[in-house]
Design a binder for these strands. Structure first.
Length: 580
DNA sequence: GCCGTTTTCGGCCCGACTGTTTTCAGTCG
């Protein structure tokens, strides 16, 4: 984990514990704001002059001192003290949707409940009856919330897994005798959540690599360790497996450990039909047995696929959901890649809830080589952001002034509108005319009945000013289910009105999901892959949006922000006239 | 606890929904 993320996590924990113990609301807010600022701060905190810490926005004397304590000693005294008062399980209770700090504390003090499991048991046993604030309806909601939390239990966000994998590979690659090292598993397939991190390696001295893995500073526990495989649990509670394989079977092993299991099963069946046998050691004649005799193919994935009569299949497609048939017909899609992207069409600044200034965001975007970039801060109906016409127009003037000044990048001025309960959006049409593009998203009233939600989304899509439907299902992975709507009808309407559907790349959204991307593209819909960045570092989340798009079988031509600017603007203009 | 300035302390993201509370607290975005 980056130092900044470690510090941010501790500050956020401190805020949570203050909230649970009934601290001052503004003080709590200060720690939350500081946590977000630190997480979004571009410089590595470990490299920042200690005296300069307080110059980070929302970090003052007290919080700077705590950060210095952490950087110096690895601890924050005041946090340790609070931890002794509130079990970590009580904090985790607040992760249950609908359960906040106040009622979590009531559960703990009145009923001794300090884990989600205990809450489930207590609810089932009727032990919450008579507890103030816990009526029959809220019990029902809690049970639903517990279900959601449990479904995501044990799985982590893809960026968390990717960061861990990167660190493991860096460290293992530095071990003498490490010849190859790569991640496999669902991470390589770019699933939206990851169970455990699989690392594959080739080493001149496998035992030495295993030892190095077991002795990593981030290895909190060794679950199992042998000659070919070692499993650890990290200090963050994530399981990571290291498998060392012979160099000659690298491709077969990478294929095997990348999965999916369903994809592997299909490949093995194909092998059997050809009188062959496929294992993680290679593709063999069925008679010769595993690992004995020279494999027919094993060194690279391409070799193995080719020996089975297939082209190489990109990992995001390996789910046995039609990719093998497509490969046999020679009809695998040419998948969109990060290099195809020419711009980002949904981003924020500190004018609303971002933590970076306009120029900082532009500088970082230009460094990514974008040809164009849209600034789309929140609109006034998201009341907490306090947007006004004046602020928006002033930002527009600034965006116009800066156009072309960051690596020649063309700037678009947009906004992220709120889709109200009835499908209305912010601002009258005359004001919306002034924007280069409008993203529109649902930010409230998530639990409307299906009919109502569908009408609401259709109305937004049919609004001629709406160019992109932002994070369409509004799911938050592990925290909020997707909205209930007739999405098929929404996709049809998007195709008809020339409204692009967003793949929000932010790792806790990844919305649309890959499954829905595949459903939507059948209607000929266009997509926009956007970072929804609220900080400089978030711009790089694009890779996860690309992963989701690839899992959804998307080609560059289906993604509007791979297009040259003139084609993009033509699409935006056409949408304004075709809709409604 | 931070910020900005009024340079020493007042204002801070504001409004709505939900369920249970008989007048509003907790939670969320």
């Amino acid at each position: 984990m980056r130092t900044n993320d470690e510090v941010a996590a501790l500050l956020a924990e401190y805020a949570d514990l203050l909230a649970i113990t009934g601290g001052d609301a503004f003080r709590i807010r200060s720690y939350e704001k500081a946590a977000r600022s630190v997480a979004g701060y571009p410089q590595d905190l470990a490299q920042v002059d200690p005296a300069e810490l307080a110059r980070i926005p929302n970090v003052g004397r007290a919080i700077a001192a705590k950060i210095r304590d952490y950087l110096g000693t690895g601890h924050i005294r005041q946090l340790e003290a609070l931890r002794t008062k509130v079990p970590d399980g009580v904090r985790r209770l607040t992760g249950v949707p609908g359960l906040g700090p106040k009622r979590a504390m009531v559960l703990y003090t009145e009923r001794g409940i300090d884990s989600v499991d205990e809450l489930a048991a207590a609810t089932a046993a009727g032990r919450l009856e008579g507890l103030p604030g816990f009526g029959p309806k809220s019990e029902e909601n809690l049970l639903r919330g517990i279900e959601l939390v449990r479904k995501s239990a044990g799985r982590i966000r893809i960026d968390t897994a990717m960061d861990l994998a990167a660190e493991l590979i860096t460290r293992l690659s530095a071990v003498p005798g490490c010849i190859r090292c790569a991640y496999a598993g669902s991470l390589r397939r770019m699933r939206d959540t990851i169970g455990d991190v699989d690392i594959l390696a080739v080493a001149a001295d496998p035992a030495a690599l295993m030892t190095a893995f077991r002795e990593l500073p981030l290895a909190a526990e060794v679950i199992a360790s042998g000659e070919a495989k070692t499993s650890i649990r990290t200090t963050d509670g994530i399981q990571a497996d290291l498998r060392v394989v012979p160099e000659g079977s690298w491709g077969a092993a990478l294929l095997y450990f990348t999965g999916s299991q369903a994809h592997n099963v299909r490949l093995r069946e194909m092998a059997i039909h050809r009188g062959l046998k496929l294992s993680e050691y290679g593709l063999f004649d069925a008679g010769t047995g595993t690992g004995t005799g020279a494999p027919l193919a094993a060194a690279t994935e391409e070799d193995v696929y080719q020996a089975l009569g297939l082209p190489w299949i990109p990992p995001p497609l390996r789910e046995d959901s039609g990719e093998i048939e497509a490969a046999q017909r020679g009809e695998l899609p040419v998948l969109v890649t990060e290099a195809d992207l020419r711009g980002d069409l949904h981003t924020h600044t500190n004018l609303t809830d971002g933590v970076a200034s306009l120029t900082d965001m532009l500088e970082a975007a230009a460094a990514r080589g974008y040809a164009y970039y849209a600034v789309t801060d929140h609109a006034p109906n998201l009341f907490m952001q306090r947007m006004t016409d004046e602020k928006m127009l002033s930002q527009r003037a600034e965006v116009r002034r800066l156009d072309g000044q960051f690596g020649g990048m063309r700037l678009l001025h947009g906004t992220e509108l709120n889709i109200g309960p009835d499908g209305e959006v912010d601002w009258p049409a005359e004001f919306l005319d002034g924007f280069d593009l409008c993203v529109a998203s649902v930010h409230s009233h998530f639990t409307q009945p299906r009919e109502e939600m569908t009408r609401r989304m259709l109305r937004a899509v049919e609004n001629p000013h709406v160019a992109i439907l932002g994070h369409p299902t509004t799911r938050k992975i592990g925290r909020r289910p997707p909205v209930d709507a007739d999405l098929d009808a929404v996709y049809k309407a998007c195709a008809r009105t020339g409204t692009a559907i967003e793949i929000d790349a932010y790792p806790d959204r990844l919305d649309l999901s890959a499954e829905h991307v595949r459903l939507a593209r059948r209607h000929g819909v266009r997509f926009s892959i956007d970072s929804d960045a609220h900080a400089v570092g978030h711009l790089a989340a694009m890779r996860y949006g690309i992963g989701t798009a690839q899992r959804g079988w998307l080609s560059p031509d289906e993604v509007i922000n791979t297009w040259p600017l003139d084609r993009l603007t033509a699409f935006l203009d056409a949408g304004r006239t075709r809709a409604s």
